[in-house]
């Protein structure tokens, strides 16, 4: 199916489905992904998969190596390292304080009682840096941050995403609802929502590209196009730009809500980060 056909199809079907989806009772919402849950790994070529399968050859890994050194390095006015609180990054017990990195990326975003908003791994790292290490924040899309989120994602490899944010009693439910609304909301000059590509036409071709299911389990991901690790929010900004919409900021409330919602859509998908994609 070519791009024009997709647009036409969307124009015909779009509005009704969007309204229906928004009016669904959240807690009883059926799986919106379709019959199968899948990540971009499924439609990647053998060559791209091979790059992800061999951790040694994964071109995002030198950055992760550097982050492993940063993790153990004392930093800030408090002269503390990540390891001082969390133990070795791969310690399943998480050091003496019992704060393991294993499973963190599969569980995040979580609710932050201080801001009453979702907090993702990036913002959590910066919270640790300012609150405990008394160090400067990492810039959102900096090498240090990408390496560190990659290092933490690595500790959750194979662990299924586990959001329960659709439950009205979940602290993240408000953010989940906002994220869902964002997902189904048309935006940009092309007047498209996330669902038009990633729900209605997942697995179909858009020119030479297979539309993904829009899952977040592989981030940070090494995109061949970027030739570098990149964050989920960078991908959001790219998507928004593609539909000629104004992208939101890294770590913005809009994207935190969307990240919260996507974590729920992906529940059950094993974590792959740092993955490799085209």
């Amino acid at each position: 199916m070519n791009f024009k056909t997709i647009i036409t199809t969307i124009a015909v079907l779009g509005t009704g489905i969007t309204l229906a989806a928004c009016q669904m009772d959240a807690y009883q919402a059926p799986n919106p992904n379709g019959s199968e849950l899948w990540s971009g790994y499924k439609t990647a070529t053998a060559e791209t998969r091979a790059m992800q399968d061999d951790d040694f050859a994964n071109p995002g890994m030198p950055m992760v190596d550097s982050a492993a050194a940063l993790y153990n390095k004392k930093d800030g006015e408090a002269n503390m390292s990540c390891a001082d609180c969390h133990g070795a990054v791969d310690d399943p017990k998480g050091g003496s304080k019992g704060l393991p990195m294993k499973g963190v990326s599969a569980r995040y975003p979580v609710y932050d009682a201080d801001t009453k908003k979702p907090i993702n791994v990036e913002l959590r790292i910066n919270k640790c840096r300012t609150k405990y290490q008394k160090a400067k924040e990492y810039k959102y899309e900096s090498d240090a941050m990408l390496g560190m989120t990659g290092l933490i994602a690595l500790q959750s490899r194979g662990i299924p995403m586990m959001s329960t944010a659709d439950n009205p009693s979940d602290e993240l439910n408000a953010a989940w609802k906002a994220g869902e609304a964002f997902y189904y909301e048309r935006r940009g000059q092309l007047n498209m929502s996330c669902k038009h590509c990633h729900e209605d036409h997942q697995g179909e071709l858009i020119r030479a590209e297979v539309l993904s299911q829009g899952q977040s389990n592989g981030f940070p991901t090494y995109r061949l196009k970027w030739s570098k690790l990149g964050s989920l929010h960078r991908r959001f900004r790219g998507c928004n730009g593609n539909i000629r919409a104004e992208p939101y900021g890294y770590g913005s409330d809009e994207y935190l809500n969307l990240e919260t919602y996507l974590a729920w859509r992906g529940r059950g998908l094993p974590m792959e980060g740092p993955s490799v994609r085209k």
Partner: peptide
């Protein structure tokens, strides 16, 4: 180089 190269030997 910012990040150390990897060598598998």
């Amino acid at each position: 180089m910012a990040n150390k190269p990897r060598v598998k030997l």
